[in-house]
Simulated scan of single mutants.
Amino acid sequence: MAESTTTSTPSQTTASTPTTTAPAPAPAPAVTTTAEPKGLLLKADAIANQFRAEVQSSLGRAERKPKLVGILATSSAPSKSYAEFTRRQCEELGFEFVLRKVGAALNSVGEGGGGGEVLGEGEGVEEAIVEANEDGSVDGIMVYFPIFGAQQDHYLQQIVSPLKDVEGLHFKFHYNLYHNIRFLDPKSLLTATPSTGTPLTSTSTDTDQPPAGMVKSIIPCTPLAIVKCLEYVGVYNKILPYGDRAYGRTVTVINRSEVVGRPLAALLANDGARVLSVDIDSIQEYTKRPRVASNPASSSGEENVKARYHPRHVVHASGLSLRECLAVSDVVVSAVPSAGYKVKTEWLKDGCVCLNVAAEKNFEKDVRDKASIYVPAVGKVTILMLLRNL
Rank of each mutant, 00 (worst) to 15 (best):
E3D: 13
E3S: 15
T7Q: 01
T7V: 03
Q12L: 10
T13W: 15
T13Q: 14
T14W: 11
T19Y: 08
T21P: 05
A22C: 08
A26R: 05
A26F: 02
A26P: 05
P27E: 15
G39E: 05
D45M: 04
Q50L: 11
Q56F: 08
L59W: 08
L68F: 08
I71W: 04
I71S: 02
I71H: 02
P78F: 05
S79H: 05
Y82D: 00
F85P: 03
F85Y: 12
F85G: 03
R88D: 14
R88E: 15
E92W: 02
F95H: 02
K101L: 12
G103W: 00
S108Q: 10
G110M: 10
G113N: 06
G114L: 15
G114S: 13
G115Y: 15
G124L: 08
V130D: 02
N133F: 11
D135R: 09
G136I: 04
I147P: 00
F148Y: 14
A150T: 09
Q151A: 13
D153I: 07
P162I: 00
L163H: 11
D165L: 09
H170T: 02
K172V: 11
H179W: 03
H179R: 11
N180P: 07
I181R: 03
L184T: 09
L189T: 05
T193Y: 12
T196G: 12
T198R: 14
S204P: 04
S204Y: 12
D206V: 12
D206Y: 13
T207H: 06
D208Q: 06
D208G: 14
Q209P: 00
P211A: 07
P211I: 03
A212P: 03
M214L: 09
I219P: 01
I219W: 04
P220S: 10
P223Q: 03
I226W: 04
V227D: 06
V227E: 07
G234P: 02
I239T: 11
I239C: 07
G243K: 01
A246G: 07
A246T: 05
Y247Q: 05
V251H: 02
V251Y: 04
R256M: 07
R256F: 00
S257H: 05
V259H: 07
V260W: 00
R262E: 06
A265D: 06
N270H: 07
D271C: 04
S277A: 10
S277C: 08
V278W: 07
S282H: 13
I283C: 06
Y286H: 12
T287V: 08
K288A: 12
V292C: 09
A293D: 12
S298P: 07
S298I: 10
S299P: 01
G301Y: 15
G301D: 12
N304W: 11
N304P: 03
V305F: 12
V305T: 10
V305H: 08
G319D: 11
D330W: 02
D330C: 04
V331E: 02
V336I: 14
P337K: 02
P337F: 07
K342N: 04
E346W: 00
D350S: 14
D350W: 00
V353I: 10
A358Y: 07
E360N: 04
E364P: 05
E364I: 06
D366W: 08
V367I: 12
D369M: 05
P376V: 05
G379D: 10
L384E: 11
L387G: 00
N389F: 04
